[in-house]
Design a protein around this nucleic acid. Structure first.
Lengths: 239, 239
DNA sequence: CGCCGCATTGACGTTCGTCAAGTCTAGTGG
DNA sequence: CCACTAGACTTGACGAACGTCAATGCGGCG
């Protein structure tokens, strides 16, 4: 095995428990090593792909933090998601062979580019990969159902609490603290995602801080009372 | 070919230009005839599957109209979509082998049950089917992005206008009028989907009627001015 | 014919958006 | 090293949009 091939091999990646190889055995894992064509490094602010661009590949995030957003002709803007290491972006492009949103790095990042042709080819041969690809897409659909619930029926405090809980939960799965996090996005981006104005996001953070639920120092957040956050999201159930 | 096999064959279905067989040639089409295990008839109000139920199959709608909705422990309810003939439901169940929402028939309906195992099997053999399944899931993801935009940044009138335009467009693709439609869902269900209360939906319909944009008689809607609706959704662009 | 669920309409309250002023911080360059 | 600046964030006052509550209307079905 050459050094270069080691470098981009899934079987050798420390995210393999989280990312594309999840659920594959060693044999299958080796077979998908050719999935990643290249790695790509991005600086903060760089776009990985943008709306209208031809779709050719999915991207697995190795390091860094992304947002995806759609923009309408009349200038409206909606952040559709925040993605972190081990997550897959670009699924929106499959249906019409072109991307329908922008993916922007919110910090310096590295991604694995996986040509979609190759994914489909290998999916036909490796059943576990086929199943996994289906699950990834289904998971995205279910996630968006959750966002629809949030946008459709929650108030500002509930939205922000749900957002924070979701973030720390995902960060925790990657070995970070459950109680501390650094937001990689602006208040405006959070607001766009949550269907709120940035002032409302800011006010709601301040309210949480007053109530002793979190400590907010700009983008540094420390969660002081996880249970309180859960109670805010889900008022009835938690007494 | 026996009568029974004709009856459930995709190759013989009048929705083949819209549904699962889309984009397949005759040869491929014949190979996926075994996709549909059974047909299932439902009465208005019946649930096709519900939250928590084991996932085994996707369903293609032959006739009728469905809603999908998630319910939280604390009784919140969010309609995540309305589906009509030729559309596929059940994608939410793939990720955890169990459904995460309820699918309810809003009128008498018939669906084709396609065991997911069989879909995956045939996808490995028929490339066009594999591609099509991926596109269906991607389309759902993109649709939900649109709903997020709607819920996150539009006002009541814009939401309802977008909703009506989307409905007639889909109905038109099925051979119905572009200007007339019968809503199969209640104001409350529309409201749940659009993140509004039923009173707001009702008021907004009345406003549109006053402005001469639509004619509303309970669930019978006639669109008098499509351009005006488009202008409401997209104020800047249309002057 | 009468009932029940759905829809409409009005009056009022709450939440969040808007506008504006001011603060903090990281990054830049002298 | 410090001053400066631009962008991000906070906070307050006010208003608009939508939710809530309640009364009433309508139509389909038994």
């Amino acid at each position: 095995m050459s050094l270069a091939s080691i470098k981009v091999a899934c079987s050798n990646c420390n995210l393999r428990e989280l990312c594309m190889p999840l659920g594959l055995n060693d044999d299958e894992l080796e077979r998908i090593d050719s999935l990643v064509a290249t790695r790509r490094k991005l600086k903060r602010g760089d776009t990985l792909f943008h709306n209208g661009e031809r779709f050719t590949a999915l991207y697995a995030i190795r390091t860094g933090f992304f947002k995806t957003a759609i923009t309408t002709e009349d200038g409206r803007d909606q952040v559709t998601g925040f993605q972190m290491a081990g997550e897959i972006i670009g699924l929106d492009g499959i249906v019409n062979d072109q991307h329908t949103c922008d993916a922007v790095a919110l910090e310096d990042a590295e991604v694995c580019e996986m040509p979609f042709e190759r994914i489909e080819e290998l999916s036909r041969e490796v059943n576990a990969l086929q199943r996994h690809v289906h699950k990834i897409m289904s998971r995205e659909i279910v996630r968006e159902h959750g966002v629809m619930l949030l946008l459709g029926s929650m108030r500002a405090e509930e939205r922000l609490a749900a957002f924070l809980l979701n973030l720390v939960q995902r960060l925790h799965a990657r070995g970070f603290s459950q109680l501390e996090l650094v937001l990689r996005m602006t208040r405006e981006e959070i607001g766009s995602y949550l269907g709120l104005k940035l002032e409302t996001v800011s006010r709601t953070f301040s309210k949480f801080a007053e109530d002793g639920i979190v400590e907010v120092k700009q983008r540094h957040i420390r969660i002081l009372d996880t249970e309180a956050l859960k109670r805010i999201v889900n008022p009835q159930v938690c007494s």
